[in-house]
């Protein structure tokens, strides 16, 4: 595996391998060890054409814990938001000798373009592209679920997950549906019909418009962020009505099974899709997701960069 562009790049073995690696790495980082020499001398570029402080910091921490050199090629004000072409950016990265590029981009498919066009030789890691995918987020979510509910199993067979909210525009949802399905979990998408894409029937997930009827059935409730700009785009009448039907509040929390956990990829709109009391409750693993993000991203970097370039086998 050279790139991580989509969960579709992963086999079940690959996915479990990343989760297992992350498990070992999280044990190391739980202890005194903060830094491993594994990627010493390798250069990782964080190319963030879209603001995302938390994802960038998470990848940066992961790379630094593996002793890689990290270059931040960041967000607004950089040449990529001034119309420099992806091609020129890629050629710049190549000239800088990047072994891997972690890319966050507002255009769906931009990481794949970067990988396919062979302007640069390094690995491309998708850190969220448009409304397409966010595979590292899905891996850290799966890691978190496995840790809490996996009962020692390698996969997530039999675990029921509800993903609630703006599925239409969510790259987190797309990656999670694919990965959770790959790992044997059962996914229910809960959203107003306006926020589900046409064609969602072909996804390996059950569809529901009724959050209350789903809550008591699932082991995991994953809330999605509702972007402010959706308010004015006729997807729902107003924030209050959205919250009334699809917000996770204390009354709804009471419907959940005692063991069920609450997740959110962040950043949260407290009071809109999730009530503050719920986000801060004991059932919420939202803060832990962030911590797990570093271990999972270390595992991704390890898997993509540590071994010999594929094809060059040696004894």
């Amino acid at each position: 595996m050279r790139h991580l562009l989509s969960i579709n790049d992963l086999s079940l073995t690959d996915a479990i391998g990343i989760l297992d690696t992350a498990t070992e790495l999280s044990r190391i980082s739980d202890g005194q060890v903060k830094k491993l020499p594994t990627l010493r001398g390798r250069t990782i570029v964080n190319l963030f054409a879209e603001d995302s402080t938390r994802t960038r910091i998470s990848f940066e921490a992961a790379a630094k814990r593996l002793s890689a050199d990290v270059i931040n090629f960041s967000a607004k004000g950089s040449s990529i938001s001034k119309g420099e072409s992806l091609k020129d950016t890629a050629m710049t990265l190549q000239a800088m000798g990047a072994d891997a590029v972690v890319i966050r981009h507002g255009a769906s498919g931009a990481p794949q373009r970067l990988a396919d066009l062979e302007w640069m030789t390094g690995s491309v890691i998708n850190a969220g592209d448009g409304t397409h995918e966010h595979p590292s987020q899905a891996l850290l979510d799966a890691f978190t679920i496995r840790k809490h509910l996996g009962k020692g199993a390698a996969d997530l067979a039999g675990i029921k997950v509800a993903i609630v909210g703006d599925v239409l525009h969510s790259r987190v949802a797309r990656s999670n549906v694919l990965l959770l399905n790959l790992l044997g979990a059962h996914v229910t998408l809960v959203a107003p019909p306006t926020l589900l894409p046409v064609g969602v029937e072909s996804w390996p997930a059950t569809i529901s418009y009724d959050l209350d009827s789903v809550l008591s059935q699932v082991d995991v409730v994953m809330m999605l962020r509702v972007q402010q700009e959706r308010m004015s785009d006729l997807f729902f009448p107003n924030a209050r009505e959205y919250s009334r039907y699809f917000g996770l509040n204390l009354q709804r929390l009471a419907l959940m099974q005692p063991h069920a956990i609450i997740m959110h990829p962040g950043p949260m709109n407290r009071g809109l899709e999730i009530a503050a009391e719920v986000a801060d409750s004991a059932r919420s693993v939202i803060v832990e997701q962030v911590a797990n993000g570093v271990s999972v991203r270390m595992a991704i970097l390890y898997v993509l960069l540590a071994g010999a370039p594929s094809g060059s086998e040696s004894n």
């Binding site: 498919g109 592209d129 448009g130 409304t131 397409h132 797309r174 894409p197 064609g199 072909s202 996804w203």
Partner: peptide, 15 residues
């Protein structure tokens, strides 16, 4: 085109 492929790719559909 708006359909299964656009849903998967996260590209806005042209119905």
């Amino acid at each position: 085109n708006e359909g299964e492929i656009s849903a998967r790719l996260g590209l806005r559909g042209w119905p």
